[in-house]
Simulated assay, not measured.
Amino acid sequence: MYCRTCGDATSPAFNECQRCGTPLGQPAVSPGVPAYAVRGLGTAAAIAVGAASVLYLPSALFPVVGVRVARAAAEQADRDLLMGAAVAEVLLYLPYLLAFLTAAVLVIIWTWRVRKNLEAFPGALPTMGPGWAIAGWLVPFANFVVPARVVANVARDSLWRRSTGLVGVWWAAWLVFTFGERVVSKFDDQRYARLTEWPRSDAEFQTYVRYYQDAIGPRLIPTIACLIAGVSFVVLIRRISAAQQDRIARAVPAWPIAPGWPGAPIGYAPGYPTQPVSGPSPQVPSDPTVASPQVHPGAGGTIGA
């Protein structure tokens, strides 16, 4: 007998597949329970997260350029150069802000969908309700812990791995970036406020040079954390999305039906693993929201996630 979720051989000595945890005899997706397509949304979210991570670099590392601009302004006694540098730093931050907001919306929707899908996967053990997949990102203080717990739960039940090491790396880097960026930004604002608004002497121009020089080191910490968090989260999104979409494509009826009968999946034979497919299975509509195949009334119950 083979597991209908992962295709591994199962043993009567165990009540569930030792690889993916699906109860013996249960389909990959519980009939009648909605399952949401996540591949396309996951790709969009991954692109948005990657774009936000990359677009953060120009504004974060602007002090490297700011040092040169401040020195040129000191040599030429040109206050307009300093003003231009301040405006340029703000303009470089705007694309990152737009990408960040886009990524935030897509990630929240993706998190809800992949968490909701667990309810259609026999053997999955959700630890938090699907509402927390949204509220966890938005509720103050809860957003320090809840998103990581939800994603760790989804990763465990979607990737069939007990280890959530990559989730830990992503969340630790995200927290370092979140707190580090705020602290550095506040510190920079306080130092900039102490600068002479309209420098006249060489000494006053040199304070701008020192301002940018002193800003380089502290900004490296949130910058590195941002890149680590972005890369690790992109990998998580793609892996989880691919695994869930593949499981939905493997959905088969919960009771035996002969090959060729209406509703029988291509390549399906009772007692044998379903063959993987590269595209959507006949049971999964191309609509963004799909439901697992319906079955005729009869024996063979299902276990909800």
Rank of each mutant, 00 (worst) to 15 (best):
236 L>Y: 02
247 R>Q: 07
216 I>A: 00
252 V>W: 03
237 I>W: 02
274 T>L: 13
255 W>G: 13
251 A>H: 01
275 Q>Y: 07
238 R>P: 00
238 R>C: 04
234 V>H: 06
216 I>Y: 02
228 I>K: 08
209 V>L: 00
225 A>H: 08
236 L>D: 02
264 A>F: 02
217 G>A: 13
255 W>E: 01
249 A>T: 15
238 R>W: 08
247 R>H: 06
218 P>Q: 09
223 T>Q: 03
248 I>L: 14
227 L>I: 13
225 A>P: 08
217 G>C: 09
219 R>E: 02
239 R>A: 09
254 A>G: 13
268 Y>F: 04
257 I>G: 06
213 Q>R: 15
264 A>P: 10
229 A>M: 13
234 V>T: 09
210 R>D: 15
228 I>A: 15
253 P>T: 05
262 P>S: 09
239 R>N: 10
272 Y>D: 06
206 Q>S: 09
235 V>C: 01
209 V>M: 02
227 L>P: 12
263 G>H: 01
234 V>G: 01
275 Q>G: 11
260 G>Y: 11
230 G>I: 08
223 T>G: 07
275 Q>F: 07
220 L>P: 03
216 I>Q: 06
209 V>F: 02
263 G>C: 06
231 V>E: 02
247 R>W: 13
256 P>D: 15
262 P>W: 04
221 I>C: 06
208 Y>E: 06
266 I>V: 15
209 V>I: 06
262 P>Q: 10
252 V>H: 03
220 L>M: 07
273 P>S: 15
248 I>Y: 13
257 I>T: 09
270 P>D: 05
270 P>Q: 14
239 R>E: 14
267 G>D: 10
235 V>D: 10
215 A>T: 08
222 P>F: 04
260 G>D: 01
258 A>P: 01
207 T>Y: 04
216 I>G: 00
251 A>F: 01
250 R>H: 11
260 G>M: 14
250 R>V: 01
212 Y>E: 13
250 R>S: 02
219 R>I: 04
231 V>H: 06
257 I>Y: 10
257 I>V: 10
224 I>W: 09
217 G>S: 14
208 Y>V: 01
214 D>Y: 12
273 P>L: 05
229 A>H: 08
258 A>V: 12
275 Q>V: 15
246 D>M: 12
253 P>K: 07
215 A>Q: 04
236 L>C: 01
260 G>F: 09
228 I>G: 08
257 I>C: 00
221 I>K: 11
242 A>T: 12
214 D>K: 09
220 L>K: 00
256 P>S: 03
213 Q>Y: 00
227 L>A: 14
212 Y>G: 05
273 P>K: 10
260 G>L: 07
261 W>H: 14
213 Q>L: 13
241 S>V: 13
239 R>T: 14
268 Y>P: 05
215 A>I: 10
248 I>M: 14
